[in-house]
Amino acid sequence: MCLPEGEFILYPRQGQNLFNVTLKVQLNCWDIMLEKSENSITEEKVIAKVRELMETLDEVKKYEVLANHFNKFALIITSSIVVVILTSTLLPYTGLLAPFEPAHRFFLTFLLVLIPIVGVVIGVVFVKKQINSVKTGEWKYELSRGFPSALKMLSEMNFESYFNTISAGGLNYVMYGLVKGVAYWIITYFVAGLMFNLTTYMILHQTQILGGASMWTALLITFGYLKKELSKRFNEIRAIEKLQCELRRLSHELRNTEL
């Protein structure tokens, strides 16, 4: 029943039509139902917004993991770069390539590119594994219990703990792109060298005649990549910091609310 019992008499008064009385009761019911559904829509909106917030915070947790594991990632990449530089420097002294012609020697040296590639792959897989181990969506059950639970989650949330690591590790996140950029530069250097030497070998039957062209080309390509990559990373960190400010304000207002 929409209305309290006994409040409405459905018998028509003199000159009144039963249909009209029934219709009036029906309209009153609709008013109440509409009001109730409006309230539940508002509650649903709050829940949807809190869900969005929690999903964003789950992503923030991943940034935290990324920032925390930057050192290991950098170590993997740097090791692969050091190994490739040492190998390419020391290889001519070992005499391993002596039996080959200079052109063949160059193409065999190209295989060293596999070292930084493997380094980047290992580093990225390692970081991806760490990111995938982040537990997300643990709040879903709590939020499914309705508006009060959404309110509880908002009021009990320690926004500071979420964002402190990110604020501190923001630089690490940007450096992550930079370290990857250095590895890409080495890889591009080898690839550009191969392309240039293949071209000169096919046309002039000679290799290593373009001097440092491959190095500068690789540097130019990497610079273009880094410019885009680093600005994206800076923007993400800035967006997270902005969100942090807004959440801090919300948290402050929630704590100071009085009924």
Partner: peptide, 12 residues
């Protein structure tokens, strides 16, 4: 909460 604008985040 409605005022909050959430950035599209996806760690790279």
């Amino acid at each position: 909460v409605g005022q909050l604008k959430f950035p599209r985040l996806r760690p790279r």
